[in-house]
Amino acid sequence: MIGPPAIDALFSTPVRIQLAAMLASVNEAEFALVRDSLGVSDSVLSKHLRQLEEVGYVKRRKGASGGHLRTWLALTREGRAAFREHVAVLEQLTKASLMPLDPRVGGDSSPQAETIRRREQ
């Protein structure tokens, strides 16, 4: 049986979801840009990055640019797919929940819902 699509728990914190959203828009982003944009410290960002790295959603690369060593972050293919799926689930939730799920609440005009309503009356 196919159940409803699940929310990815790894994207449950605001920092991680923003981090993924930023990285999904680009190929690579610099650590400092992400840190400053999200308004977090190096250690907080590193902690969230480690969690995403452990499941293979994010990868880091060190690269020299303009005479400085910079850390570049990127979403992996799995990370991009997981983020896309997560956004799709959120969009589905905002749309699907416009209709009441419980037929007894009203609004559901399916024959099954009608039967339940009649039985309860």
Binding site: I17, Q18, A21, M22, A29, V87, L90
Partner: peptide, 15 residues
Amino acid sequence: AQRTLRTIHDAEQII
């Protein structure tokens, strides 16, 4: 879900 989507859009807006 709407709040989370707004957060995502804000992050995309930065880029």
